[in-house]
C-alpha cells in the first residue's frame, strides 16, 4: 500500500512568552491509504499537534510532512488551503458547524468551495451522505436544533462530501456520551470500509481505540509504538 501521509522526524515547538514548549519531538510516521488509525495518548501528549501538522493547518518547526505525496513545507498558503479542500476532511471535537447554515448547507459547503459540480450533482451527493449518516429528515434543521451526536454526524458527512483521501478527526467522541460516541466511530468505520477513505483520529478512550485497525501511541511529544488492533486491545 502507498503512504498517503508521511511524517519524517517532525518537531514542533510553541513559544509561550519566553518559554519554549516542545509539542512534538522527532516524530516519524507513515499512514497508508485505506487505514483506520487511532492516535492515542494522554492530554498534552501532542496528538492534536500531530493532526494539525498532517491536516496542513499548522507547520512543523523541523522535519517533513508529506500529504498525498506533497511536501507541505514548500507549498504556498493558497496551495495548502487547496490541498485541505480537495484531499483532507476534518471532524472536530466541538463539531464546528456553521451555525447560520442548515444541515444540508453545512454538508454542501465544501462542494461549493470546490466548485465544478452542478446543483443536481451536489444535491444527490449531499442527499446520499445525509441518508448514510441517518439525517435525511433533518436536512433543513440548523445545528442548534440538533443533539451533539447528530451534529457530529453532520460533521462526518461534511468531512466526507468532498471525497477526500484522508479524514482527520480530533477527539471526535470527546463531547459525546459513550453510546453516541460508539455510533460515530461505527459510522466512520463504515465510511472507511465503504469508500476506502483513510481515517486518522485521536482519542484517549480505550473503547474507541478498539475500533481502529491500528493505534499509534504518543507521549511527551514522541511516538511510543504503533500497535495493531489485537495488540492494542
Amino acid at each position: 500500500m502507498s503512504a498517503i501521509v508521511s511524517v519524517e522526524n517532525v518537531s514542533k515547538t510553541y513559544h509561550l512568552g519566553k518559554t519554549e514548549v516542545p509539542a512534538l519531538r522527532g516524530v516519524s510516521l507513515e499512514i497508508h491509504a485505506g487505514e483506520f488509525l487511532a492516535v492515542a495518548g494522554p492530554s498534552g501528549s501532542g496528538k492534536t499537534t500531530l493532526l494539525n501538522l498532517i491536516g496542513c493547518v499548522d507547520t512543523p518547526t523541523a522535519g517533513v510532512v508529506r500529504v498525498d505525496g506533497k511536501d507541505t513545507s514548500v507549498l504556498s498558503e493558497r496551495a495548502l488551503t487547496d490541498l485541505r479542500l480537495r484531499r483532507i476532511g476534518f471532524i472536530f471535537q466541538s463539531f464546528n458547524l456553521v451555525p447560520v447554515l442548515s444541515v444540508f448547507q453545512n454538508v454542501e459547503f465544501p462542494l461549493l468551495l470546490q466548485g465544478g459540480l452542478t446543483r443536481g450533482e451536489r444535491q444527490r451527493r449531499v442527499g446520499e451522505l445525509l441518508q448514510a449518516v441517518g439525517l435525511s429528515d433533518h436536512a433543513r434543521h440548523r445545528p442548534s436544533e440538533l443533539s451533539g451526536g447528530q451534529r457530529q454526524r453532520v460533521a462526518v458527512a461534511r468531512a466526507l462530501v468532498g471525497r477526500p483521501r484522508l479524514v482527520l478527526a480530533d477527539e471526535p467522541t470527546a463531547n459525546l456520551d459513550s453510546t453516541t460516541g460508539a455510533t460515530i466511530i461505527d459510522l466512520m468505520r463504515d465510511m472507511n470500509e465503504r469508500d476506502q477513505t483513510t481515517f486518522l483520529f485521536s482519542t484517549h478512550d480505550q473503547k474507541v481505540m478498539a475500533h481502529a485497525h491500528a493505534v499509534v501511541r504518543i507521549a511527551d511529544g514522541q511516538l511510543q509504538a504503533r500497535e495493531t488492533l489485537q495488540a492494542a486491545s
Binding site: 488551503t81 476532511g89 476534518f90 464546528n96 456553521v98 459547503f109
Partner: peptide, 16 residues
C-alpha cells in the same frame, strides 16, 4: 474566530 478557523481549515481561501 473559531468559525472562521473552521472555514479556513475545510478549505476556504483567505480572499473568500
Amino acid at each position: 474566530t473559531r468559525e472562521i478557523g473552521t472555514l479556513r481549515a475545510i478549505g476556504m481561501q483567505r480572499r473568500k
